[in-house]
Amino acid sequence: MDQVLDLYFDFDTMQRFFPMLWEGFVLTLQMTLLVVSIGIGTGLLLALLRAFGVRLINWPMQFLVDFLRAVPPLVVIMCAYFALPYAGLSLSPFVATVASLALILAAFAEEIFWSGITSVNRGQWEAGRATGLNFFQTLVHIVLPQGVRLAVPLLTNRTIEISKSTSLGSAISVSEILNQATNAQSIVANPSPLTLAALMYVVLFVPLVAMSRWVERHYRWQH
């Protein structure tokens, strides 16, 4: 038992490396906010674009979306960081990670929003169009709010999952929480910084989980 306490709950070590992990915390927070806002925003725009049913746009979009959903996030991040420079595009580790995860979230969000949009009853479209609303107005004011409501639980789960993948940035040396913690761990040969990292993830993601629950409740109306 003492050994467990020494190894994982060494408060002196935690205190010593707190500033270092705090930097990682701030960075992870920034990445998360960027990934969530860019990913969900882009996903919504793509779903709206898809609703117009232009094949020339939808086919390549579908291909890209399927690709991003099929490939593990770490592979996407590695490709973005190590392969893109050969195409003349060099990204910083931070940008490569955020861009990869935002794209992956956008791909999932597009599919989720789309499934929400398509599960709205056809009668809702007809009611809107019959009162003189055009296609886009009907989509935005009538169909989308209902589609989003259906999409919210799926979306919040996926968002949390992909946001946590910011830790994969450590593989290309982004100094986010996990990277800082493993560095600290290797300096003192004690994994207590990992415990601190876990705590920080809890502090970071519990509000996100709570917020998602609030959003889910907010989008539920009486039927």
């Binding site: 009853n121 009668g123 809702q124 007809e126 009611a127 169009r129 019959a130 009162t131 003189g132 609303l133 055009n134 009538i142 709010p145 209902q146 409501r149 109306w221 039927h223």
Partner: peptide, 20 residues
């Protein structure tokens, strides 16, 4: 058609009210 439909009211079997 949007213009035309403004002047033609329609009532549906399933009401099709906007639940939100």
């Amino acid at each position: 058609l949007d213009q035309v439909r403004r002047s033609i009211g329609m009532v549906f079997q399933q009401f099709n009210l906007y639940p939100h």
